[in-house]
Design a protein around this nucleic acid. Structure first.
Length: 908
RNA sequence: GGGAGAGUGGCGGAAUUGGUAUACGCGGUUGACUUAAAAUCAACUGUCCAUUUGGACUUGAGGGUUCGAGUCCCUCCUCUCCCACCA
């Protein structure tokens, strides 16, 4: 029979669907495994080849888990609400609500073709009222738990999309979607208080089985820093300015202050400004500047002094000038800083430009103490001695005092410190940029010289790093910052070490210790049409009231004029029948909120909904069944794009944590394991319609079959790596599939009952390799192993037992589900291959012999078989007789390195 | 400017984590089959000498540690991604 992928794919797809092959029993499953991929936002262009790779990649893993005995749940849905879809509708001049129906159909068609083991019954769409009634319910819960609040704030406004953007959607000052520079606009908005959870979101990261870059990205996004909040009085005025600083020890060096242009004090009319007009002009100019202009890299700082007003440095009661500059962010800390130009690069730059006084208050200490190594080897000593010698007169060696390094070109003190046991020495030759720390447990830790966090870590580890004044330019901020300097010009605090002084000074001036996060509250409101209406009603008498549960969902009405108005109001604001409502409390006249919520809110909880899509839940209740949720969640394996490493993943964690605190879910973290897949590019660029480089999977699937495409995409590279799409290698895969097909064509062939030893070994190795590789998402090498196995089979087909043939099919089945299912049935096996048990590698008898790598001077000269337990003497004697190697043994070797059972190396 | 990561044949990529570098596949060369082509099958395919049996050199560049380095350390170069005035 000829291999006809189209025919067999159609047949099995239908059968699997009919027999619910991939629908686990959500209520009773014994061994649940929630295998999830990030659900796509559907564009009418359809799936591109990159998403097919991700989806099938996730599916391969799920099928593998199923055969290992798990009840795998692999749901699919569409993240169809939001700017993505709406912008697309705008572009092609169609109504998003109508368009959604079209894209939905197209997407589900494509998704059904790629051979994934989706649980089709549980699909969901975020724009379906049956779904977003729960989204709205959750909003109300957020409100009731004081996690949703309104705030008038400067928001990021995209003049092109005519909407407000979250900070996360502003990329280097530009709109994430259209690249237009973002401006600031004042609007009253709904926010979620994610900052309440900053500390837990940060702390929990440690516990997650996520790839490290993603964890780092989340840590940086949360951006914790510890410092103090200090208050500066304003001279001859009742108000004061609060600042946040991580360096309260430098307070005496604060020679001026800088306020953000948006700082509320500047609007205070009782302030006696001598140059109010000029100040207001500056503020206005700053407001009009786009984010990108204000934050452009290397941009020269601008600013204006507030004349006639001064602040009082609480440390020494000296009057210091107040400046305004847009390098100070209104949204971080208190929107004001104390400027210490001697110890901060930006302040320094500013002070130089405007000729402001610079006062040094930290004197780097004279002894430089580092690090390292209790396992001193002799080279270490030699190096240290070498350096010590080249700088005669710089100190004693025996007491380990001075050492020379090139970078700073100066001398460092090395002294023994109070470590529990030592000695600890500097480990460096040449420039000291990185410092190697040998910890007690034998692990090495590296500390980056230029990185203040790393240095803090070193500091906490108990290593004091102090820097001589003449050793560094004062502009080397990080070094100076970290250097445990000693205070000077600081009155009674002189002589105190930085770290002690921080809190002593804070206390003395009545400041308080404070932790500051970079993370800001999550802006939920969108002045757009295509999203779930925010279920809130404003009544003049009763204030903001949630829509009563019984009135959910607040349906998004079909309106003709869905385009953004550009006025800052949602298109829904012009629909009277929508927003004219009664107050749920007093029944008086009230106005419904006309903004919709952010798409990221839809996707922050969808994984909770999937297993409960068909559970019996009234809309007044929690949107998921407690029993089912307990069984299936948290998600076991989550795979998605690295571009969501902060936004979606952080929001989902936040939501889950809040729900946990309200007792609605039993876990804090939604995704036990997360892996980011690689990005498939085309001609080096991300696939996008605008670049015209979208590769559609349809024609490929038609031409080669789905199995071939799945294999090919898996074969490109490990799933976690990306790559450029080329179809040149696809022939290798079709050849392989053809060989597999042909090999299994005759089920009546006479076969050995048991494979010969060689085949047995091959099968066993392949099982091991494929199992390990699929577990690690390295499908490329799994396929390679299967190809090797097939080549081995083809050399002696009659020696491959039926059992081993079936083992091979099973190994291939997650990757190529159709062809294997067909061959499985041709060979009259019971049921579906996809519910068969994953093969276990035969436990091989440890053979008595082993292959030894024979090296001469570290170079491999031969690989020979010897008894596994042969001794060094035994192997040497035997090798001396070996003709090919005899020439190396004219003289006895200087040294022999012998690793039993594995390797012998003769140094001659 | 900060953070994360990567440099291996003509190409995609392997290398049980310090022990045969270039698995597997693409592409290429030659041959078989064919009137011919495609498909298929077989052999070869990192570079340079010797071309027989070998030998030398090769993982961005340079240095180091080691009996032994693609893998660990240092310096430099190049590229990709993320973040970006966060006090």
């Amino acid at each position: 029979m000829r291999y006809n992928p189209a025919k067999i794919e159609k047949k099995w797809r239908k059968k699997w669907f009919k027999e619910k092959t991939y629908e686990p029993d959500l209520v009773r499953a014994k061994n649940p495994y929630y295998n999830l991929m990030m659900f796509p936002y559907p564009s009418a262009e359809g799936l591109h080849i990159g998403s097919v790779r991700t989806f099938t990649g996730v599916d391969i893993y799920g099928r593998f888990k199923r055969m290992q005995g798990h009840d795998v749940f692999e749901p699919i849905g569409l993240d169809g609400f939001g700017i993505h879809s709406e912008n697309y509708a705008l572009r092609i001049n169609q109504h998003p609500m109508k368009l959604a129906k079209v894209t939905e159909k197209n997407f589900y068609r494509q998704l059904s073709e790629i051979g994934n083991a989706f649980a089709w019954r549980e699909r969901l769409e975020t724009y379906d009222p049956a779904y977003y009634q729960h989204t709205q319910w959750l909003f109300i819960q957020m409100f009731k738990h004081n996690l949703a609040y309104r705030k008038k704030a400067k928001v990021n406004w995209c003049p092109s999309c005519l909407t407000v953007l979250a900070d996360e959607q502003v990329i280097a000052g530009k709109c994430e979607r259209c690249g237009t520079p973002v401006v600031k606009k004042d609007l009253e908005q709904w926010f979620f208080k994610i900052t309440d959870y900053a500390e837990r979101l940060l702390a929990n990261i440690e516990k997650l089985d996520w790839s490290d870059p993603i964890k780092t990205a989340q840590r940086n996004w949360i951006g914790k820093s510890e410092g103090a909040e200090l208050e500066f009085r304003i001279k001859n005025h009742e108000s004061s300015i609060k600042v946040f600083t991580t360096r309260p020890d430098t307070l005496f060096g604060a020679t001026y202050m800088v306020l953000a242009p948006e700082h509320p004090l500047l609007a205070n009319s009782t302030l006696q400004m001598a140059n109010r007009e000029a100040v207001e002009k500056y503020i206005q100019a700053a407001a009009q500047k786009s984010e990108i202009e204000r934050t452009a890299a290397g941009k020269e700082k601008t600013g204006i002094e507030v004349k006639g007003v001064s602040a009082v440095n609480p440390a020494n009661q000296e009057a210091i000038p107040i400046w305004i500059s847009d390098y100070v962010l209104a949204t971080y800390g208190t929107g004001a800083i104390m400027a210490v130009p001697a110890h901060d690069e930006r302040d320094f730059e500013f002070a130089k430009k405007f000729k402001l006084p610079i006062l040094q208050v930290i004197e780097p200490n004279s002894s430089f103490i580092v690090v390292i190594s209790r396992s001193l080897n002799k080279n270490f000593y030699e190096q240290i001695q070498k350096f010590a010698k080249v700088t005669p007169g710089t100190g004693t060696w025996n007491g380990l005092n001075l050492i020379y390094t090139e970078e700073v070109g100066k001398v460092f003190d090395i002294a023994e410190k109070n470590f529990t046991s030592g000695p600890w020495y500097i480990h460096s030759e040449g420039p000291v940029k990185k410092i190697l720390l040998h910890a007690a447990d034998g692990k090495n830790e590296r500390f980056d010289w230029g990185n203040k966090d790393e240095f803090r870590k070193a500091y906490e580890f108990g290593i004091k790093i102090e820097i001589k004044k003449e050793q560094l330019d004062f502009s080397d901020v990080y070094a100076a910052y970290i250097g445990e300097g000693v205070l000077i010009n600081s009155g009674k605090f002189n002589g105190l070490k930085s770290e002690e002084a921080k809190w002593a000074i804070t206390k003395a001036v009545g400041g308080e210790k404070k932790v500051q996060y970079r993370l800001r509250d999550w802006l939920i409101s969108r002045q757009r049409y295509w999203g779930p209406p925010i279920p809130m009603i404003f009544c003049n008498d009763c204030g903001w009231q949630p829509v009563p549960d019984k009135d959910l969902p607040v349906k998004l009405p079909f309106i003709r004029e869905f385009r953004p108005t550009g006025t800052g109001a949602s298109p829904l604001a012009s629909v009277k029948s929508f927003h004219q409502v009664k107050c749920p409390k007093c029944q008086g006249r009230a106005r419904r909120e006309t903004d919709v919520s952010d798409t990221f809110f839809d996707s922050a909880w969808y994984f909770l909904r999937y297993p409960s899509v068909h559970a019996k839940i009234s809309k007044l209740e929690i949107p998921w069944d407690q029993e089912i949720t307990r069984r299936w969640l948290p998600v076991d394996m989550y795979i998605g794009g690295a571009e969501h490493s902060v936004l979606h993943l952080l929001y989902s964690r936040f939501m889950t944590m809040a729900l946990h605190d309200w007792g609605l879910v039993h876990f804090e973290e939604p995704f036990a394991t997360f892996r980011a897949h690689g990005l498939i590019t085309k001609n080096g660029a991300k696939m996008s319609k605008s670049k015209g480089n979208i590769v559609s999977p349809d024609s490929y699937m038609k031409a080669y079959g789905v199995d071939a495409i799945r294999l090919y995409l898996a074969f490109l590279a490990p799933l976690t790596e990306g790559g450029d799409f080329r179809d040149s290698g696809i022939r290798g895969i079709t050849r392989f599939l053809m060989r597999v097909w042909n090999f299994y064509q005759d089920p009546k062939i006479k076969l050995a009952r048991v494979s010969d030893e060689k085949i047995q070994k091959l099968v066993s190795q392949t099982i091991q390799k494929v199992s390990r590789d699929i577990q690690n998402l390295q499908y490329n090498t799994a396929i390679s192993a299967l190809m090797i196995a097939m080549s081995g089979f083809e050399k002696s087909p009659e020696n491959v037992s039926k059992e081993d043939r079936m083992q091979f099919l099973k190994l291939l089945s997650p990757l190529a589900p159709f062809i294997t299912e067909e061959l499985w049935s041709i060979w009259k096996q019971k049921g579906t291959i996809h519910h068969s048990r994953w093969p276990e590698a035969r436990v091989e008898k440890a053979s008595d012999t082993a292959e030894f790598i024979i090296q001469i001077n570290g170079k491999t000269r031969a690989i020979l078989e010897f008894p596994r337990n042969i001794s060094e003497a035994g192997i040497s004697a035997s090798l001396a007789k070996n003709n090919a190697l005899a020439k190396f043994f004219i003289a006895p070797p200087k040294k022999v390195v012998f690793i039993p059972g594995r390797l012998i190396n003769f140094v001659i």
